[in-house]
Design a protein around this nucleic acid. Sequence first.
DNA 1: GAAGATTGACTTCTCAATCTTT
DNA 2: AAAGATTGAGAAGTCAATCTTC
Lengths: 149, 149
Amino acid sequence: MGAAIDPARLSAWRALLEAHATVVAAVEHALAAASLPPLSWYDVLWPLYAAPERRLRMRELAERVLISRTGLVRLVDRVEAAGLLAREPVPGDRRGAYAAITSEGIAMLRRMWPIYGGVLAARFAEPLSDAEADVLAAALGRIAAGGTR
Amino acid sequence: MGAAIDPARLSAWRALLEAHATVVAAVEHALAAASLPPLSWYDVLWPLYAAPERRLRMRELAERVLISRTGLVRLVDRVEAAGLLAREPVPGDRRGAYAAITSEGIAMLRRMWPIYGGVLAARFAEPLSDAEADVLAAALGRIAAGGTR
DNA sequence: GAAGATTGACTTCTCAATCTTT
DNA sequence: AAAGATTGAGAAGTCAATCTTC
């Protein structure tokens, strides 16, 4: 059942699937244990915080969050209901909407990062050598960029 | 917002998240375009095919599929309804149930693999050098194993 | 008519509670 | 009482269709 792809690369793929699943599960578990929102909320809030004006169009946000356009609407609904971001009109284009992070949202990022980063440090970063980290970033970055073709 | 973890490893993590999302999305899309079941069905059927007697206890299967125990029950329901696997009693333990792949299930694996493997070859394997593939398999394998602690 | 965003209907996943067997 | 598996209820995701604005 494995003909088209060489064994070393197939092993790498399986390892990626497992590593992704275990680290994400550990992060979700730690966040829940600290009574904090799920990882998806961080994924939405972080790009907003990092954006030039602390805001992004829904369309731009959807690309960064790697979720369907529809799924993002629902996710933003929930995060907005919690007061961590606010929708704002776009001057000059009444079709559009910005999602803008609020100060409560920024505070939430600051509460979530120690948990998220802590799990990442222990479960993802610690087992890696410096050389491996560089190879991972380069190789996986190339694969991720390939998705844009 | 990024203090605990060094930049190279954080980049590696972001790249992993993106690479995972883009490759999985491409596989799902290709399977759907070929009128084949989703990746999760492959994830269930493959461990059964690879198992000693072409069957596994529900509990064992849940560990390999990296899904919650409850989620697996629902997934197995659907795959069983399609005739690709069958539940069987466990001799000597009437609490338990085996999931056993059927010949139709094996045939389905053979139809799915060319699509799955083809996307993997193009989107995951092709951009990797031999050396990178080895590093990925080793490093990510170590991280995945850390989940068992 | 196409782009941006949303809504409705449906599918799938998860948690807590349940049932059966050990 | 604990282990194995399942069920009910709720949360969250997707596709197709819709509404508004360009």
